[in-house]
Amino acid sequence: MSKTRRAFYFLTGLIMVPLGILFILEPAEGYEYVLLLLVLALLGYAVNHLIYYFLLARFKTGGIEVLFKGLIFLDAGLFALDLNDVPKAYGMLYMIGIMSLSGLIDLLQGNQARILQSGHWKYQMGYGAGKLFFGLSCLFFLDSARILTLVFGLGVLNMAVNRISIAFRKTDMVYVK
């Protein structure tokens, strides 16, 4: 991983720590900022993929998958953008869904890392399980806004700590010469 990328992970992790705390202490404000972060992440990922497609991947055999991936994330990002106008409950559900899905993906990637005998598979699986746990736990507390924001805020802090740790971690890889 390049130094720039490590710095990016570290800084975004640092930004997420106060956001998580803010979410727990002042849910209304915290919600707005977390939603903004989510929108920026999704739209940024989508735009990145779309630019990559039009610049390079459209000449690649099977490159259309990059276009569709970009479109799906664009859809998700635009939907998140629209959430500001709807009741917060929907926005919360959307964010809970993203957190849970992201946790599931991390769990599967952790399992893949376990097969590849990477040194970080336990951490990765644990982190994914944690995110999934926080995400699914929120569904049990939909009636109690206070507990819901507390659990979700802890989930955000969990993600923040993970990003900071990634910045200092050595990258494992499978390489075939």
Partner: peptide, 27 residues
Amino acid sequence: HNPISPDSLEKNKFTNCLKQDGELSTM
């Protein structure tokens, strides 16, 4: 993508790098 399991011509089993759609990935 399991580097531990050796290639096998008899079983038609081979190992390759994980698909990574990052353009500059060393994979």
